[in-house]
């Protein structure tokens, strides 16, 4: 199978240089030809483990973290907000 590696990279928000793209395309083709060997099994529809339902927390406001501490890891902060490039004209 031939894989359009640049298309997949674009979907994954990755940039591949041409020589890198060739290498990754070859790796991917090998990996895909390994993993595609799977038996055809009847579709039971049950993809979620019935013995193991997820338990969600209630939708209740709780104070867990300090805003300043959380923002300490952000690459660029101004006036208590994360700075990003302009997204709307």
């Amino acid at each position: 199978m031939t894989i359009d590696i640049q298309h997949v990279a674009k979907l994954a928000k990755l940039r591949l240089e041409e020589d890198q793209a060739q290498r990754f395309a070859k790796d991917m083709e090998n990996i895909v030809s390994m993993v595609q060997q799977l038996p055809d099994l009847p579709d039971t529809g049950a993809l979620i483990d019935p013995d193991h339902p997820m338990i969600f927390r209630g939708d209740v406001v709780e104070h867990h973290y300090d805003r300043k501490e959380l923002l300490a890891n952000a690459p660029q902060v101004k006036a208590g907000c994360v700075v990003v490039p302009k997204v709307v004209e």
Partner: peptide, 19 residues
Amino acid sequence: RSEGFGDEVKRRILLGTFV
């Protein structure tokens, strides 16, 4: 993402995105 991730991580992200 291209500068921050190494090759193996990119490989898995690409495989996952593909499948």
